[in-house]
């Protein structure tokens, strides 16, 4: 446990001592701000238009008009950013040879995997934390559903953690960071849009495919609901890829 924490702190220090974490947080905040402004401006325009119509203005909801699309957009930004955060985690150690020292210390593979995983998750938490300023602004001028804000953020966190686990796995496969990044990005996108094929396959297959889709499980979070099966999905997604990662580290030793 103390060894895992040592690796966690070293990785975190690397993120924050290098420019990576700051660039990532800056881009994420910038894009989130842009989305937020756009969505709010549009919502504002819509509410002015329906002011005279009491029924229509009843139907206009801050959750559906601003929060839900905001979380949807941020999930796509996470898709773009997470691979860049995770691609160096294990591949760089192999490239520079530090893996040889790291894995001859009396640590377990899991110490390394979880230390690195939670370091990236911590950066993710900081990124998401910075964007809390938008719901706060919203709360200052309107009355958003705070429950939906909480579930939306929980969804983003779980989604990001799933991307990180997958990114870490691809980083264990190669000593080339770019390759790890592209693989992580490609497969993240694939898992996100796998549901698109639903209408063109048999209904049984479609049900399975929809259940695999990352995006499908995100919807209810952004609508303000927590479904157990969605939480279970994201957690098992992460655990699965972290497990694969540990297998790769093990087999690297036997093959090389």
């Amino acid at each position: 446990m103390s060894r895992m924490i040592a690796i966690y702190r070293r990785e975190l220090a690397f993120f924050y001592n290098s420019i990576i974490a700051y660039i990532v947080m800056m881009m994420f905040s910038l894009l989130a701000g842009y989305f937020f402004y756009n969505l709010l401006a549009f919502f504002n325009l819509a509410s002015v238009r329906v002011m005279q119509n009491p029924i229509a203005s009843q139907q206009l909801s801050l959750t559906e008009g601003v929060l839900q699309p905001l979380f949807g957009n941020l999930s796509i930004v996470l898709l773009l950013i997470m691979p860049m955060l995770t691609m160096r985690l294990l591949s760089e150690e192999r490239k520079t040879g530090t893996a040889e020292l790291l894995f001859t210390y009396p640590i377990s593979d899991w110490d390394a995997i979880l230390g690195k995983y939670f370091a990236a998750v911590t950066v993710l938490l900081t990124m998401l934390g910075l964007t809390l300023v938008f719901p706060a602004l919203l709360g200052n001028h309107a009355d958003p559903e705070w429950g939906a804000v909480v579930t939306g953020y929980l969804g983003l966190l779980l989604l990001g953690m799933a991307f990180i686990a997958m990114g870490l796995f691809f980083s264990s496969l190669t000593e080339n960071q770019i390759v790890a990044g592209i693989l992580a990005f490609g497969f993240s996108l694939f898992f996100l849009i796998i549901g698109w094929i639903g209408p063109f396959v048999s209904s049984g297959t479609a049900k399975v495919i929809v259940q695999i889709s990352i995006l499908e499980h995100f919807h209810s979070f952004s609508r303000g609901m927590i479904n157990t099966n969605d939480v279970v999905y994201y957690v098992s997604f992460s655990v699965f890829f972290l497990f694969l990662c540990s297998r790769v580290l093990e087999s690297n030793r036997w093959r090389s």
Partner: peptide
């Protein structure tokens, strides 16, 4: 193969923990 971004004492501290 050393971690080039760390100082000597930070690095030894890290290794000691591991």
């Amino acid at each position: 193969p050393l971690y080039l971004d760390l100082t000597v004492s930070d690095y030894l501290e890290f290794v000691g923990k591991l």
